[in-house]
Design a protein around this nucleic acid. Structure first.
Lengths: 339, 339
DNA sequence: TTGTATGCGTTATCAG
DNA sequence: CTGATAACGCATACAA
């Protein structure tokens, strides 16, 4: 732990001196950038261990042009969903020697741009963007500078790798579940309508309705902002509109939780009076009362995959092209409508 | 946005050349490290703007020994509580030019030590440790290398600044609230008993009981792990023990939520049959059913204060010594016990 | 007030 | 296979 002496960090040059070799040789051993005689390897490794040498990433960054860091743009540092993805990224990156730099874009295109500038200035070697707001063009542009991995959209460009999640299918599954239970008047609390995610889920919702021969009623679709309060308010608007509905599909779990509360305050019970399906399957959803039926989006896996992909790109390899499918999780917040 | 040309990053030397001054002059202007004539200032600023120059933090770090980054050790990247603190840190750090490096210690002393080593290797200028597991000695040790700010404990050492939260008082307030409602048999779901936080809250619990003349019953105290599942399991243990209790004080909101679910599964209603108080006041607690009475711990402010403190230390100033007090938030999960 | 020279710790390019 | 030597981009004594 730390250096035994308080004499400050040991340098590569000191290791070289102690091992009786040149700095270049130490560097070569560290990076495996050339073959070195076994004897010197031995000597150098001993010196490293003895002196407790740790390479200075800052100097490495300057000299080698690589900082061994990857920027991660998340949308919120305090989101239950992105938080899990961040955990996946950190854990998956750790053994590779890369370190993540987390910054948050707050679902805002301009802020996201600023984040990229900040990270680029910090000379990150690559970029992971979790469900970004940036246009495909800007992303492709960015990918010309450094490898980029984006989640939540399908996209292909040089140096760019997309880990898509089938939001359309997720939206379809959720709605289909409610339809199968017998619901016909199904409200949809959407995310920010400017976001591809939200639009895809809406598309899935409409596709399922259409497939079931249920007419689409725009009055049953209300926007939200992906947090509890907006779900609550959206539901209140829905109720005040006097439009009849027997089920709600919320574009994420947090809004679904808000919806449950709004109904509760009007003495409407879930699922006896109104059924609710969420989206994401954040941990809290399993502990809600009633536990929330939802579409599982494996955030942790997304994180792991994104990290693996950026490392692959950084190493000049081709990332695995895998996409975890959306999965319907049926819990207690859904049941057939009252007769 | 980015550089106009694809010609790669502009260097300070290029700015100097363009402005017709020496590199040192540009550096001086950038850092305000000396007085420069107005004319040259003008010229340099123009050149900077025209060329879109952005200083390279990596080179700066090497040359100046400062990386303008501060390491932040959080316990989990996906915690609703720490997430908010992280947000406070990021937002408060942004205008100062410092960037946070978030890593997670997973409530483990050895991992925390590794985090510190990683961050030290990255040459962060300072360190913020959110509710760390490390002993006071190790912290003081660490603070001899660089400025350190810790939250959640009282501690004083050179280069070390502690932002304490009165967990004792919080625990006392929560218990007192239940006592005031008439509860006498109050269970306590503790956090990891090895952690100071948990111990302090327990102490507060016991102090309140004592003050009210209620005997302390160790059988009513069960450990948890600060997540929903552990709260659920702890409550099940409590129920299986056949020990009578009319209220539960959980050492954090997530465990409280788990407790509510455990009771629900046994058809015990909150608050009619059992009252529950949590701790932290995470956003979800206001949207739970029933909404959770809890002790508010202003995580966002903690983050802001920690960031402000580390910046102050970094500037050689004395941080403000302020501690947001614990606050009882009464919602719907508590009421007098049944007769 | 300003410029020159040097160094930060490593990698990369050369010779040998 | 190995060792000098030159960058990397900036900050900072030092000199002027």
């Amino acid at each position: 732990m730390g250096d035994p002496q308080g004499s400050g960090p040991v340098t590569l040059a000191e290791v070289a001196a102690a091992a009786g070799v040149s700095p270049s040789t130490v560097s070569r051993i560290l990076n495996g950038s050339a073959v070195v005689s076994a004897a010197k390897q031995q000597a150098v490794h001993e010196a490293i261990a003895r002196l407790g040498f740790v390479p200075n990433p800052v100097a490495r960054g300057l000299a080698g042009g690589r900082t061994l860091s990857v920027g991660v743009i998340t949308q919120a540092l305090d989101s239950p969903f992105y938080g899990i993805a961040m955990r996946g990224i950190e854990e998956s990156l750790a053994p590779t020697g890369y370190i993540p730099l987390f910054v948050s874009g707050h679902w805002d295109e301009r802020e996201e741009m600023r984040c990229i500038d900040t990270l680029r200035a910090r000379r990150v070697d690559g970029l992971i963007i979790l469900t970004g707001r940036l246009g495909d063009g800007a992303l492709a542009d960015c990918a010309r500078t450094m490898p980029v991995v984006v989640t939540g959209r399908a996209l292909s460009a040089p140096g760019l790798f997309a880990i898509d999640f089938d939001n359309f299918e997720g939206g379809r599954l959720a709605t289909e579940h409610l339809l199968a239970l017998g619901h016909r008047r199904i409200a949809f609390i959407s995310g920010d309508p400017k976001h591809p995610d939200a639009l895809e889920r809406l598309r899935g919702y409409r596709a399922a309705l259409e497939a079931a021969g249920v007419a689409y009623d725009p009055a049953l679709v209300v926007p939200g902002a992906y947090n509890e309060r907006s779900g609550l308010e959206a539901t209140e608007r829905l109720i005040r509109s006097r439009r009849r509905f027997t089920a709600i599909f919320a574009a994420n779990d947090q809004m679904a939780i808000g919806a449950v509360l709004a109904l509760h305050e009007r003495s409407l019970r879930v699922p006896q009076d109104i059924s609710i399906v969420g989206f994401d399957d954040v941990p809290a959803s399993a502990f809600a009362i009633p536990s929330l039926s939802t579409i599982r989006q494996p955030a942790y896996d997304h994180g792991r995959l994104a990290a693996a992909a950026i490392v692959a790109l950084l190493r000049g390899q081709e990332p695995d092209r895998v996409a975890p499918p959306p999965l319907l999780v049926v819990r207690q917040s859904t049941q057939p409508p009252k007769a």
